[in-house]
């Protein structure tokens, strides 16, 4: 089973600056994705969940233990955390670092070496294990950070932008690892810029922009934002087609991101009717399809069009 995360009216201030404000949510077994634009307070919130920050106001509890309490220390071996930036000291080798971290978790020195090697192997670091970290790329450093979080089976994973800087060939491997741990019952809180990955992964979504804008399932998020579907008509002369459809009272826009010559109709139910009218007027209609809003589109609509 995963550790239960409970956040109640939590706020964090740095002087006059508010990082997050009156945030409330709960998380249990499964994957909760935290998304929001830059400066929304995602990193600060995730750091609070693992006790690196103390909330200025409100309560943040993991398995019923306040993260500010000394008792929280006891839970730390059950928590894996991947920080956003791949900052690591340059002088040690990945194996030296992982072994030290394993020993800090109470594993004796002989076992720690084995655990460190296994963790390194999990993230494909075998060849780089004896190379000084300073000589390794950012992508490899990110894998070291992931390896230290996944070196043991945890009950809570807090992952701050784990895909950022990760080599593309490792994205799917890491994704499978996450799904495997989620299936085993772990609680996973993840923030990411790769929205499609989160969309596929997450059981629940939390949209944060200093305050919580939304918490719920992907379907609930899409349902909240109407329309959740649009129609895309690919035509030969999109500008003229747009003008023609607007004259007839259709709500339409040109969106080249959905294909060359794409005219997007906000009401998907009128797609074939509009396509027929266009064809009758001499336009070449190449394709008519329904398009479901992606998380990115839903998210942008929710946070006011800012892309994070």
């Amino acid at each position: 089973m995963g550790l239960r995360v409970e956040v109640r009216d939590a706020s964090k201030r740095f002087g006059f600056k508010i990082a997050y404000d009156q945030v409330s949510f709960e998380a249990d077994s499964g994957i909760l994705a935290v998304i929001g634009p830059n400066g929304a307070g995602k990193t600060t919130l995730l750091k609070t969940l693992v006790g690196l920050y103390r909330p200025s106001k409100g309560l943040v509890k993991v398995e019923g233990v306040d993260v500010s309490s000394p008792l929280f220390d006891r839970l730390l071996s059950k928590i894996g955390y991947v920080p956003e930036t791949p900052d690591l000291p340059a002088w040690p080798t990945p194996c030296e670092l992982l072994e030290t971290l394993a020993r800090l978790e109470g594993i004796d020195s002989l076992d720690a070496r084995r655990v460190a090697r296994e963790a390194a192997s999990l993230m494909g670091l075998d060849e780089d294990c004896e190379t000084r970290i300073g000589r390794l790329s950012k992508g490899v450093r990110k894998r070291i950070l992931i390896a230290q979080a996944f070196m043991r089976e945890r009950e809570l994973y807090v992952l701050d932008e784990p895909y950022a800087g990760l080599d593309p060939e490792w994205v799917s491997t890491f994704r499978n690892l996450l799904l495997e741990r989620a299936r085993a019952g772990a609680t996973i809180v993840i923030s990411s810029h790769i929205l499609r990955e989160v969309e596929d992964l997450a059981d629940r979504i939390l949209v944060l922009k200093t305050q919580v804008r939304f918490v719920g399932s992907m379907q609930e998020l899409k349902a909240k934002l109407s329309p959740s579907k649009v129609a895309v008509i690919i035509v030969d002369r999109p500008e003229e087609a747009l003008e023609y459809l607007r004259r007839l009272g259709y709500q339409a826009v040109i969106d080249s991101s959905k294909g060359k010559g794409a005219v997007v109709l906000k009401d998907p139910d009128k797609a074939f009717e509009a396509a027929g009218l266009l064809r009758d007027s001499g336009f070449v209609v190449r394709e008519v399809r329904l398009h479901e809003m992606s998380l990115e589109e839903a998210y942008l609509a929710l946070v006011g069009g800012e892309k994070h």
Binding site: G51, D73, T85, L104, Q148
Partner: peptide, 16 residues
Amino acid sequence: DIREGLLQLFFLRPKG
């Protein structure tokens, strides 16, 4: 250790 991000990794260990 603060600057290099090592401290947060140490602090995430029990009694770290």
